[in-house]
Nucleic acid binder design. Structure first.
Lengths: 351, 351
DNA sequence: CTGTTAGCGCATTCAC
DNA sequence: GTGAATGCGCTAACAG
């Protein structure tokens, strides 16, 4: 029960070598004779040795410079949750010396992204956390990081043909599928459901919302209800335009009973319907942003699907610190976050 | 951005005293002259000093003996999740020397509880984690712990008239309320809904399920549907008896479209209905136990409400360690867990 | 190649 | 009352 924790010194004694040698072996630093290595490895196979991250960190007295690059976010928006998870981790692991730099970019402006990414490789950090948007630019960045041997971790989504140390994402397809199920079972059984997405300004984005849409449509198809789907898009950048087009869409499809908003802008639609006094259409959207929270509270959004952005940020930093301190072989772990269903009642406990 | 972390030595230098003195003040150990105390406090007010839990722990080279007392649980049951959260925490904070003892009791046998609780105070541990069932016995235990100045933390639920260092629970009332909402919105709009609870063998338990029931009924009342509620109970200890009584209940109330099982035994009902080929009644229950997981997978349970038992166990240990190491004034924090809605689609990511 | 040593931030102990 | 010294587990630098 209280099996004594075993330390490097213990291993050294058991293997008949010094602590320094054990350390060299544990960290693959080389400069060890075969005899010593084998002796130590024999001991290691028997005992269950575990590093202590915190002690390791303080004794290597190095400060790690991590750069975080994500879309700019106002407080309360999706990306700011990821950022707060990151700050939270830095706080929690304050014994590890890390200095964090941010390189924000405008997710609607590819040039802003290019220049942010350029600044990163100029700084030559020890590690990078990437919240990606533009596929090609991110791939270029990763290529340079690979060349410079700088480790990186993705949050929110993965970009193909890259070699991250780890990835923290959600299963967007399943999110869409689940959204379909919820919307159908919670809205009136007759009538149609609508998919609303953002108007994209023609970039080849690795679209999260495309995956969600695919999941949603698959659910509908499996239920034999593909013909009940209506579809439209709205503008995130010019919200003024939306009211008219959304209302036209609603008028033209009077049997709509549920709306799936495939990004975190459910509140835009909810506010319009509320303003027009329409309360027999339920809305489900994504992410616990402050605007969406407001709508959950006033009842204009029925549910939100959330993907633990804080946890993504937190764990990204945590994982990166382990990597930096123990320089493990890039395991490329892919962690998929839980999908939380948040409604008015359980909202308070998610904030 | 990279504001240098400030250490005890720094404070000492700034206040013109030695590190030892600063430590004495930080920990209220006394034996400090007024002059020194004031000098240090002046510095402390300016800088933002933070302890490092891990370093503190290793340098005080004490091993804390924590006793955990909860109902016995088979693997996959509710209480075993709490236990695994506890073990997880001990692992994660393995730098802190803690030795953990378990004092399990049978939650259906008050004598087993009495004797378990007696063994605890005999051992004189440094701290206790309590998963309570019997109100009176727990209060007695707490009285003795208070007298012996042994700190304790509650998980799962609180017992009145006790003085825990912290409490980790769920809002059971809201769980019931939310369950009502889900059941009503997901089952056929006409028809009735049933509440099923466990037959209690006459103890005055602080019943979690009573709170849930109250929340559920309040939701129904608010929707003006109190007359749509049917109610029955079943036996957890003698499952054989249930099939007949449940089926009689169903036959007698043919308009039932949804069943709320107010404890973690939803699988018992689900298995019966499934066996009888009844598939037009949806079931919602509580907790991610292995039996319930099986039923979510095969579709016989539609949703589970879960209260993060692992997190409760994990955080209980974490909080207790902070308390033990920093002997803070008993803040009596009450932490309420999120209520997770788990369905077939998001299940894999909660396990 | 290997053992030894100093030092990381902190709590504790022991002389002064 | 107080400062200095010691040790916790670990890494890094250095002398063999």
């Amino acid at each position: 029960m209280v099996r004594q924790k075993i330390k490097i010194k213990d291993i050294a004694k058991m293997a008949g070598v010094s602590a320094g040698t054990v350390d060299r072996i544990l960290h693959n630093r080389g400069n060890v004779s075969r005899a010593s290595r084998e002796a130590v490895e024999r001991v290691l196979a028997e005992v269950n040795y575990k590093f202590n991250l915190h002690i390791s960190a303080i004794s290597c007295r190095k400060t790690f410079r991590i750069t975080v690059t994500t879309p700019i976010a106002s407080p309360g928006e999706y990306w700011s949750s990821i950022q707060s998870g990151i700050e939270h981790a830095i706080e929690e692991y304050s014994d590890i010396n890390i200095s964090c730099n941010y390189a924000y970019y405008n997710q609607y402006d590819i040039y802003s992204c290019k220049s942010a990414f350029n600044s990163i490789t100029d700084q030559v950090p020890d590690a990078v956390i990437i919240g990606p948007t533009f596929v090609h630019e991110t791939q270029e960045l990763c290529k340079r990081l690979d060349a410079a041997n700088i480790p990186y971790i993705f949050v929110d989504s993965v970009i193909p043909d890259t070699h991250p140390v780890a990835t923290f994402t959600t299963d967007h397809y399943t999110c869409g599928f689940l959204l379909g199920k919820l919307l159908l079972s919670m809205s009136a059984k007759e009538g149609s459901v609508a998919i609303l997405g953002a108007q994209r300004t023609g970039n080849e984005r690795a679209s999260t919302s495309l995956e969600r849409r695919r999941g949603f449509r698959d659910y509908m198809a499996r239920s034999g209800l593909t013909d009940r789907i209506r579809e439209a898009s709205f503008s995130v950048l010019n919200p003024e335009e939306n009211e008219k087009s959304i209302m036209e869409f609603i008028q033209a499809n009077r049997d709509i009973r549920g709306i799936a908003v495939m990004n975190s802008r459910g509140y835009i639609i909810a506010d319009i319907l509320r303003k027009k006094g329409i309360d027999d259409i339920i809305i489900i959207s994504f992410d616990l942003t402050s605007n969406n929270i407001r709508c959950i509270k006033n009842g204009s959004i029925t549910a939100l699907l959330c993907q633990r952005p804080e946890l993504q940020g937190f764990n990204a930093i945590k994982e990166m610190m382990q990597h930096l301190i123990y320089k493990q072989e890039g395991k490329g772990n892919h962690y998929t976050m839980p999908i939380d269903i948040v409604m008015q009642e359980n909202l308070p406990y998610y904030k």
